[in-house]
Amino acid sequence: MSDQSQPIVKPQPIVEVEDLWVWLRKRGREIPLVRGLSYTLRPAEALSIVGESGAGKSIGVRAALGLLDPRLFRVTGSSKLVGTDVLALTAKERARYVPSVAALVFQDPGRSLNPTMRVGDQIAEAFLKGSGYEPGMTRAKAEARALQLMKDVRIAAAEERFKAYPNQLSGGMKQRVVIAIAVACKPQVLFCDEPTSSLDVTTQAAIMDLIGELRDQTGIATVTITHDLALAASRARKVIVMYGGQVVEALPARLVATESAMPYTTALIEAVPDIDGNGTPPTPIEGMPPDPANLPSGCSFHPRCRFAQDDCLTNTPELRVVAPAHELRCFHPVKDLELQEASR
C-alpha cells in the first residue's frame, strides 16, 4: 500500500492491525466474526470503518484493543499500538498498557457512564487511580483537571455538571463526558464506536467537530466506526468498508463518491440520501447481512449482489490493490479501475 500524497519520511504508525481474526466460541464451534482485518494509522490520521450492522466493526475494534474475553472469543493476528502488539501481552500487562496509549468512545453514552457515580468523579478517577496518574497527584488536582477537561469538551456550566449523575445529563453531554474521560490519559489513538448514532443530528455534528478539533490540536489518531458512509467520507482521511467480517473495500475518503467500485460500497452510497448530490432517492440494500455462523460460499456478498456471476458463488475473492491506496475484494467491480489505472 502506498499513498503518493504522504511525505516520504512518514512518522511511525500508531496503530498497525495485521490479519486480525476473531472467532466466537459457541457450543464447541468457532464462528468467525472478523476475518483477516488489517489497517495502519499514523498520528493525526482519521480512519472510518463503515458497514452494516453485524459486519464485525465493533468486535474488530475491541479485539484490536485486547478487550475481548478469551473465554468467549479466540483472537489471532496482531494489533500493534504504538509499536507493541497488545495481543501478545498478558492480561495484566495489557490492562496497564492499552489505557496508556488508546481510548474508546462508545455508541450509547447512556450506557457508557457508571450510573451510580458523579460524572466529575468518573473523570477525576482517571487521574487519581488510572493511567492519568502522575506522581504528586491529589484529589484537588485531579478534580481541577477533570473540570478543565469538561470545559475543554465544551460542557456548559461545567462546575455544576461536575456534581451531576449521568442520568441528569443529556445524551450529547454524556458523550462529551465520555470523550473527556477518553482523552484524559492523553492517548495517541482514539477509537470511536458509532459515537453519534444515538444522538440527534445537530449534536452529531457537534460531537464529530469536537473529535476533529481534538485531532487537530493534539495530533491524536482516530478510528471511527459508523453506518453512515457520507459521514465517514466527510470526516476521515481513509475509509474501510466491512462486510461479513471482512474488509471489502478500502480507499481514501475523498474518492468514496467517485471511485468506489465494490457493489456493496456503491449500494451503501445509494442507500444514503444525497451523497452524490444528484437527488436520486435512496435505495435500501435488499436482503440481510450474512450470518457469521453460516457464511455463503464464494464471495460473501454474492446473494445480495446485482453484479454477481457464477464464479462469485464458487471462488473466494482476495483483497487486491486496484489503485493507489485503494483495495478491493471483488471479481466484478462496478468500475474497471485497473483499466483506468492502466490507461493513466
Partner: peptide
C-alpha cells in the same frame, strides 16, 4: 456494560473496577 469497559480503559485496577463500577 460499557461503563465497565470504560473503567478498564481508564487503566483502573480490577479491585477498583469491581468496587466502584
Amino acid at each position: 456494560e460499557e461503563y465497565v469497559t470504560l473503567a478498564w480503559m481508564k487503566g483502573l485496577r480490577p479491585t477498583r473496577i469491581f468496587g466502584k463500577h
